[in-house]
Design a binder for these strands. Structure first.
Length: 321
DNA sequence: CGTATCACG
DNA sequence: ACGTACGTGATACGT
């Protein structure tokens, strides 16, 4: 609402800017300084291993899984996360892990081919949907495809997509129909998860971990629809959570075996691991980290798409990420 | 204590 | 007909 008014009046923008700064100061700048442990001069979070229904970790007191990154002002807070003297921070994150898992789980040939070829997945989706050659892809068309890809993973609705893209529900519905025409396997996957959750009250990940969805039993149609969308999302989000957990379990041993005893695993942010390493060990650490993360599904599951990890070392978290 | 808002993946 | 994008946690504020 204020965003809309800000286009034509001065005051709403001032208020929105104030809100953003006030939020960042209260939630991060002030609170994180308070959270510093005087004994270690560091901030120590708590991870809940069984809090999120999908199998993700949750971080609290303080939450270090929602440190700002999307705005320049916010990134200044991330820049304050620095390593010890003589060390670097290494951030290693899975590239598009949820869409890769969707391609595998749903057995979607078009998506699997795109990942095998190392394509920009949102551009490839846009090309397939809107009949635009990859070489001529424009940012706006790619942006729409990206929103659709997110929507698919969330258990898409015309309302949600319309809201996200600022278009009307009719147009959003047309996008969704086109998407299902081009990627028929996705609809089959969604229908299968809906049937599974209706019959059993739960779905499961590739690794066999179960996700119970009691909302599917509600007498409210809206709540049941909510349960269906959760059932579509949970095997994807949950498999990604399983994979990074497997990587984390193996990581200390792998680092030790490589003679990298000075490297510490510090944080997990859903598809990212953050490490602190002696400067001289950073290169070798990145190689080990990438190998463990990219191979973390094995041997339990042989994925039909490659997992790709981007990793970088730097003097603060913002530059490493 | 619940709600609105907003930070992240 | 319904009312919604999936998963979290922290803060401000009203009760």
């Amino acid at each position: 609402m204020l965003e809309e008014l800000a286009l034509t009046h001065e005051l709403p923008r001032v208020l929105l800017d104030w809100r953003q700064l006030s939020k960042l100061k209260g939630t991060y700048t002030d609170a994180l300084v308070e959270a510093m442990d005087p004994a270690t001069d560091r901030i120590h979070t708590s991870y809940q291993l069984a809090a999120a229904s999908t199998g993700r970790l949750a971080s609290s007191d303080p939450n270090l899984q929602n440190i700002p990154i999307r705005t320049e002002t916010g990134r200044q807070i991330r820049q304050a996360f620095i390593p010890a003297d003589g060390h670097v921070l290494i951030s290693a994150d899975y590239s598009q892990i949820e869409l890769r898992l969707l391609a595998h789980i749903g057995d979607i040939p078009e998506l699997k081919r795109a990942f095998a070829a190392g394509l920009d997945i949102h551009a490839a989706t846009a090309s397939e949907m809107f009949n635009v050659p990859l070489a001529e892809m424009d940012p706006e068309t790619r942006r729409r495809a990206k929103a659709i890809n997110f929507g698919i993973v969330y258990g898409i609705s015309a309302f949600g997509l319309a809201n996200q893209l600022g278009i009307d529900q009719g147009e959003a519905g047309a996008y969704i129909r086109t998407y299902f025409e081009r990627f028929p396997g996705i609809r089959a996957y969604m229908d299968a998860m809906k049937a599974k959750v209706r019959e059993t009250g739960r779905v499961e990940t590739l690794f066999g971990r179960r996700i119970h969805i009691p909302a599917i039993l509600s007498k409210s149609a809206a709540e049941r629809a909510f349960g269906e969308r959760a059932a579509i999302n949970a095997p994807i989000q949950g498999a990604a959570a399983d994979i990074i957990r497997r990587a984390m379990v193996r990581m200390p041993g792998a680092l030790e075996a490589a003679g990298l005893s000075g490297v510490k695993m510090l944080l997990q942010v859903h598809d990212e691991l953050v490490f602190e390493a002696p400067e001289a060990e950073a290169g070798r650490a990145i190689a080990v980290i990438r190998r463990v993360m990219e191979g973390a599904a094995e041997p339990a599951v042989a994925l039909s798409v490659p997992l790709v990890v981007d990793a970088r070392a730097a003097g603060n978290w913002d530059e490493a990420h």
